[in-house]
Amino acid sequence: MIALWSEHRRSLFSFAGRETRQPFWLWVLSVVGAAMVIWTVFMTAFVGIIMTGPIEAAPLNFAMAPIVMGVISLTVIVLLAAAVARRLHDSGRSGWWGIPAPLFLMSGMAMMARMFTAIQADTQTPGATDAMSGMPPLFGPILLNNLAYLASLLMLVILCCMASQPGDNRYGPSANGGDSR
């Protein structure tokens, strides 16, 4: 595992070249696994703070959770972007095929943050009776964005699972010596 992180650390920002399926998926698994651990620790601390007293006294507020999740997601995107481009290159495709999924993810995060901020503002307004009044205008766009994100992510996973293009291609020499694993 340390060798995997060392190898990808050297090529972290290199969008050139090719990468075979096995090291790519091990890298994806380790990055997503690390993000899940960090997310779990954050959410556990966040919920623990909220549960120990009144929400107004908490040093964190509901608007901060989507922001932190956005930072974690952006970090995962940065760590995986070059590897995805190299994996797509290995199957003979341009790295630009990897762009739609992160764009939909980031726009969804921004819309969710806006929705949660509106909900929080509604709950803190004196005399407010409907805590969900900030949700209906954003629900449709968020739903459509999430469906587009899932479709683009599925397309990207399928493309990254495809066999390597045998031999050299326009992106460089074969990363596995001609084997199409």
Rank of each mutant, 00 (worst) to 15 (best):
L79R: 10
G140C: 01
S94Q: 14
A82G: 13
M112Y: 14
W97S: 07
R21A: 01
T52F: 02
Q120W: 08
F42R: 09
V76W: 03
H89L: 03
P66M: 07
A118G: 04
A34M: 07
Y149L: 15
P100T: 10
H89M: 05
A65L: 15
G167N: 05
T20E: 06
M162W: 10
M109P: 00
V31N: 13
M64D: 14
P59T: 10
C160A: 12
M135I: 15
L159H: 02
L12G: 01
T125P: 00
L12N: 03
M109H: 05
G167P: 03
I119N: 00
A16R: 13
G127D: 01
M69I: 04
H8M: 14
S180E: 09
T20I: 04
Q124Y: 07
P141D: 05
D90A: 15
R21N: 02
M43V: 15
A151R: 07
A83T: 10
I50N: 11
M132S: 04
W39G: 14
S11N: 13
I50F: 06
L88E: 11
R18D: 05
I99T: 11
A65Y: 04
S30D: 04
W96M: 14
S174P: 00
N169I: 00
R21L: 08
S11V: 02
S11K: 13
A101F: 05
I99E: 07
A128G: 04
V76N: 11
H89R: 12
A58N: 10
L159K: 03
A85K: 04
L88N: 12
R87A: 07
D168K: 12
P102M: 13
G177R: 09
A58V: 05
I49E: 10
P136T: 03
L29K: 00
T125H: 05
L60R: 09
H8S: 11
I2R: 07
P23W: 11
A45C: 03
V78G: 10
P136A: 11
M132A: 09
V68T: 05
N169E: 14
D122I: 08
A81E: 02
Y171A: 01
C160M: 03
I158S: 04
P173H: 04
S6M: 02
A163I: 00
A175M: 12
A57F: 07
V32R: 05
R93T: 07
M135W: 10
S73R: 00
V41W: 03
F24T: 08
L74T: 14
L29V: 05
G53K: 04
T52V: 02
S30N: 02
P137Y: 09
S164P: 06
A3H: 01
D90I: 00
A35W: 08
L29S: 12
L4G: 02
F139M: 15
L29F: 01
I50P: 00
N169T: 15
R21W: 00
F104T: 06
L74K: 01
F104G: 08
I55G: 00
N61H: 04
F15G: 06
D130F: 04
M112W: 12
Q124W: 06
L26Y: 09
N145K: 03
S6P: 00
R170G: 05
A128S: 15
A35E: 13
I55D: 12
R181F: 09
L105R: 09
A65N: 05
W25G: 08
A57T: 11
L138G: 11
G108F: 06
S164A: 15
I119R: 13
G172F: 02
S152V: 02
G108S: 05
